Simulated scan of single mutants.
Amino acid sequence: MRVKVTMRCNECKQRNYNTMKNKKNSPDKLEMNKHCPFCKKHTLHTETK
Results as ranks from 00 to 15, higher is better:
Met1His: 11
Met1Asn: 11
Met1Ser: 13
Arg2Tyr: 10
Val3Met: 06
Lys4Ile: 11
Val5Asn: 02
Val5Met: 04
Val5Gly: 02
Val5His: 04
Val5Cys: 07
Val5Glu: 03
Thr6Val: 11
Thr6His: 10
Thr6Phe: 11
Met7Phe: 01
Met7Ala: 02
Met7Val: 00
Met7Trp: 01
Arg8Ala: 01
Arg8Gly: 00
Arg8Tyr: 02
Arg8Leu: 01
Cys9Arg: 01
Cys9His: 02
Cys9Pro: 07
Asn10Ser: 06
Asn10Leu: 13
Asn10Val: 08
Asn10Glu: 14
Asn10Gln: 14
Glu11Pro: 01
Glu11Ile: 12
Cys12Lys: 00
Cys12Tyr: 05
Lys13Ile: 06
Lys13Asn: 13
Gln14Ile: 12
Gln14Trp: 08
Arg15Gln: 11
Arg15Leu: 05
Asn16Leu: 08
Asn16Tyr: 03
Tyr17Asn: 01
Tyr17Pro: 01
Asn18Met: 09
Asn18Val: 10
Asn18Pro: 00
Asn18His: 10
Thr19Glu: 10
Thr19Arg: 02
Thr19Asp: 11
Thr19Met: 08
Met20Ile: 13
Met20Thr: 14
Met20Gly: 09
Met20Ala: 12
Lys21Gln: 13
Lys21Ile: 11
Asn22Asp: 15
Asn22Phe: 10
Asn22Gly: 08
Asn22Met: 08
Lys23Tyr: 02
Lys24Trp: 05
Lys24Met: 10
Asn25Gly: 08
Asn25Leu: 15
Asn25Phe: 13
Asn25Arg: 14
Ser26Met: 08
Ser26Val: 06
Ser26Thr: 14
Pro27Met: 02
Pro27His: 03
Pro27Cys: 02
Pro27Gln: 05
Asp28Glu: 10
Asp28Val: 00
Asp28Thr: 04
Lys29Trp: 02
Lys29His: 03
Lys29Thr: 00
Lys29Pro: 01
Leu30Arg: 11
Glu31Ala: 10
Glu31Gln: 11
Met32Ser: 04
Met32Val: 07
Met32Tyr: 15
Asn33Val: 15
Asn33Cys: 07
Lys34Tyr: 06
Lys34Arg: 11
Lys34Thr: 00
Lys34Cys: 06
Lys34Leu: 15
Lys34Glu: 03
His35Asn: 07
His35Thr: 07
His35Glu: 08
Cys36Arg: 00
Cys36Ala: 05
Cys36Gly: 04
Pro37Trp: 04
Pro37His: 04
Phe38Leu: 10
Phe38Thr: 12
Phe38Pro: 01
Phe38Arg: 07
Phe38His: 12
Cys39Gln: 05
Lys40Trp: 07
Lys40Gly: 04
Lys40Cys: 13
Lys40Tyr: 08
Lys41Leu: 11
Lys41Gln: 15
Lys41Asn: 13
Lys41Val: 06
Lys41Trp: 01
His42Gln: 10
His42Val: 13
Thr43Tyr: 02
Thr43Phe: 00
Thr43Met: 09
Thr43Cys: 09
Thr43Ser: 03
Leu44Val: 09
Leu44Tyr: 03
His45Phe: 14
His45Tyr: 08
Thr46Asp: 03
Thr46Met: 07
Thr48Pro: 00
Thr48Val: 15
Thr48Leu: 03
Thr48Met: 06
Lys49Asp: 15
